[in-house]
Write a protein that binds this DNA or RNA. Structure first.
Lengths: 380, 380
DNA sequence: TCGAGTTTGTCAACTAATGAAACGAAGTTG
DNA sequence: CAACTTCGTTTCATTAGTTGACAAACTCGA
């Protein structure tokens, strides 16, 4: 294989980034097609693609696709190996990392316990993990970090306003990591990172708007409007954990009656059985074996999820709604209740919801961090 | 006064529009300030402002404001009279029109019954109203139309997908009107038009995100993210009329139990009294006079409004929430219930909501239409 | 009062991005 | 094989924007 060109520090121009995005999201295309898509002249695309090829980011496909008539077009495609990115996911006690290529394909994964919950230690630890992984996978271009917490960008700087799990407040995490590793770095809320990943590299690819719902320890919502992930003024968009579902229902840990998490979070499903010593996996097994109480807990959760999905569809009218997370089994065990709740709560004039249920592995979180870095690399 | 320059057909360049927007939304500013705000060089602003002054769109303020030291700056301000716009609001039986200047100040208002509900007649009637008003107010630059219905833009064209009140479907209303009057025309959902108006010329001025709630015949929600009004994939964003509030409550006309409109719409407040022959004005009077049933109806409505506001705040995390519409009295008669419902339904970690209650006159609707035209003129 | 300092607005020269037009390339079709 | 179509490239012009120098118009302090 041809040797990778030195990733010249030359930052990409606007059109170069758009072209790369187009190829990344919509797959191989000819210059003329991209030109039409982006509303640019073919001349510009000739120029732009030349520099992208020189930088080793795309390849001039030897394959030629058929148009009905006229000269056949040369199909351009991404060279995913042209760049590498480091994705990190922080939990309260562990650090997960993954190295991906430009197409967000994982090339290596690694995780270790957090040595402490202090910001300095975490930054140093990320630096260490970077060096360890960079030794085997040279050419990492940027770093993206996902974690539970509210991140906003003010004045061109990303600030982690608050992370309840880690106890951090007002931390310029991205900048600290960037200084430590000497590369561009981004930090974002983990749900929004996952939304970005699903939006570019998952079932949301190509849509201008979508909503992602994660079900698991908690319930998270990510919103994409106009091709961008919505952050909110305080980094708190999509905070629907306490959406009222049934005013007579069980209490959540914040004292609300019958709110969304009180039905839908994994712990809530376990708690509904009122049997000490159970965990989520065993309740899931019980439900699959037909245990009535367990099945009912999942049914209630499915109903709550449907209320959430319908409310979001009514609010945003997205092109697509994606459900994922490690509590995804609810969609399989309570599909009827889910659909019924959607039908009951969807605005009567609303179009049918394009619902997509995505299987989920835990390393998606770290991969989503890498997607942050990729999006940043392409300034989006 | 200096004579108006001929509105040269020369379309404004990007920076010209940005500059105009900046002055329009944030008020008078110096060239240097605008340059810093937009991240441009002062030289560019010299060039741009010259052409804007030549076009009669802004004026080089004779007044000079103080900076601490250095050469004083010349403050630029919009010349609102530099351009005129026609705003139209269509209801099922009437046409409301208003001529505004560039700052969305109404200069003339006019309304007449719709001659029929056919598209052709309505377009012809808008054309007639335009000619009538243009005779007295020459120099109208563009037309904006607000109406109840779902409008999406596909392929650079705005299509009215559906308007239940008028029975229209798949109508390229903007294009038809544009052909008829020979000017650029825009059509949009009336609530979104009002949101745009409030966002640029009302209490939302200067914010990147906001939510507007209209209370009246129906309940409408407009969402602004990233400075733009959210349309949704099918023009149905903000369709929260049937948000569940109390599962045991009264039925709405679509059969939902205890949903938002069943409490909050004017007709629902009237209906709650179960007394034939009443209208909204008389129920309002009763409530103001202390009638218990009327007060309770408003209290319930206030609660429902609070649930809506809290849900929207949780979903979007906007900088501001604005409530307006002809049913605005509920905020005054049930402020306690409103605030209590917000507190109860707001996410526990959410920041306090910046709530703004705006008085409302019916001709706001037509003015909002003109704002559509202004935004279109400034390509936003 | 006057010179030093500061910020504004302007001008001229330069740069980078893009489009228009013309053209050769590479196929299909009759 | 000639006519036609579409693609990719080249050349040249245009244009939006920057940089840097400079005069203008003020404040401040000696």
């Amino acid at each position: 294989m041809e040797q990778n060109r030195r990733p010249s520090a030359a930052p990409l121009s606007g059109l170069e980034r758009s072209t790369l995005r187009e190829l990344l999201i919509h797959g191989p295309k000819s210059r003329a097609e991209i030109a039409r898509e982006l509303g640019m002249s073919r001349a510009s695309l000739t120029r732009v693609t030349r520099t992208l090829i020189e930088q080793g980011l795309i390849a001039d496909g030897p394959l030629e696709l058929r148009g009905a008539t006229g000269r056949p077009s040369e199909v351009l495609r991404i060279r995913p190996e042209g760049r590498r990115f480091l994705g990190v996911k922080l939990t309260s006690d562990r650090l997960f990392a993954v190295v991906t290529d430009l197409a967000a394909q994982a090339q290596a994964a690694y995780d270790e316990p957090l040595v402490s919950q202090s910001v300095e230690d975490a930054v140093a630890q990320i630096g260490g993990v970077y060096e360890r992984l960079a030794a085997e996978h040279p050419g990492i271009e940027a770093v993206g970090i996902g974690l539970a917490g509210d991140v906003v960008s003010k004045g061109g700087q990303q600030i982690l306003l608050e992370s309840p799990f880690l106890g951090w407040r007002e931390v310029p995490l991205a900048e600290l990591v960037s200084e430590r590793v000497g590369l561009p770095a981004t930090a974002e809320n983990d749900t929004r990172a996952l939304t970005a990943a699903e939006h570019w590299f998952g079932v949301g690819a190509g849509y201008e708007s979508m909503v992602l719902i994660t079900v698991g320890t908690g319930v998270g919502v990510g919103i994409v409007v106009d091709g961008k992930v919505v952050t909110g003024a305080n980094g708190k968009a999509g905070n629907l954990e306490h959406l009222p579902v049934e005013p007579t229902g069980p209490r959540c840990d914040r004292g609300h009656r019958g709110c969304l998490v009180a039905y839908l979070a994994n712990a809530a499903i376990v708690g509904a059985l009122r049997t000490p010593g159970l965990d989520y996996a065993s309740v899931l097994q019980l439900a699959r074996n037909g245990d009535p109480a367990a099945r009912q807990a999942f049914r209630d959760a499915g109903h709550a999820l449907g209320v959430l999905a319908a409310t979001l569809a009514n609010t945003m009218d997205p092109e697509k709604i994606v459900i994922t997370g490690d509590g995804i089994a609810v969609t399989e065990l309570a599909r009827e209740e889910l659909d019924a709740a959607i039908a009951a709560n969807r605005h009567p004039d609303g179009a049918p919801i394009a619902l997509d249920i995505q299987p989920f592995e835990f390393d998606e979180w770290a991969r989503a961090g890498a997607v942050l870095a990729i999006r940043d690399f392409l300034r989006f």
